[in-house]
């Protein structure tokens, strides 16, 4: 996996990170303990627009200031592996709880894309999110998805392909 571009999937627990990971990767998946910890990290390869990417499903995190071991590991992955794209998956029902981490990842200079997930549940709860305006406010790409039924995956793949090279985006 040496010369592949890297994509890290981050977000708080139970927002659909693993489902998204499964949608993108498919068969070649490695689950291993992060060195020196009991925290499991899942990695796999995805073929997007003819190019192969190494995808890492990071442990759940609420903040860049870690309290739990999972959060420490997730942050270490971001710092040490320097992903070319960070996909922040959030629960569209609960923007107020989700966006603090988005702000922190953007602040850290990571090449971030926001995956606005669980839109079906949000719609059922009567919640609508103006994703274009959200993208404008944050200054990053926002993709609308329902990972469990595959909605938005095509769009996500397109945006990943269009995102360009790491060196151009990374601070």
């Amino acid at each position: 996996m040496k010369n592949m571009k890297k994509i890290a999937i981050v977000g708080s627990p139970n927002v659909g990170k693993s489902v998204l990971f499964g949608n993108l990767t498919g068969r070649y998946v490695i689950v291993s303990n992060y060195p020196g910890t009991t925290v499991e990290v899942t990695r796999g390869v995805a073929k997007i627009g003819g190019e192969e990417f190494e995808i890492t499903d990071t442990p759940g995190m609420y903040s860049l200031l870690p309290i739990t071991e999972e959060e420490s590991v997730a942050r270490r992955i971001l710092i040490q592996e320097k992903p070319d794209i960070v996909l922040h998956v959030i629960d569209a029902k609960n923007l107020e709880r989700m966006l603090p981490l988005t702000l922190q990842i953007i602040e850290a200079g990571m090449p971030t894309m926001l995956v606005l997930n669980m839109l079906d549940e949000a719609a059922a709860a009567g919640i609508e999110v103006d994703s274009a305006l959200l993208g404008k406010e944050l200054g990053i790409s926002v993709i609308r998805t329902v990972c469990t039924d595959g909605t938005g995956m095509e769009e996500l793949r397109k945006r990943i392909t269009a995102y360009g090279t790491a060196s151009e985006n990374r601070v």
Binding site: I127, L133, E137
Partner: peptide, 10 residues
Amino acid sequence: IASRVVRKKR
């Protein structure tokens, strides 16, 4: 930000 982009129907 949320108050600008989120609309609750009910």
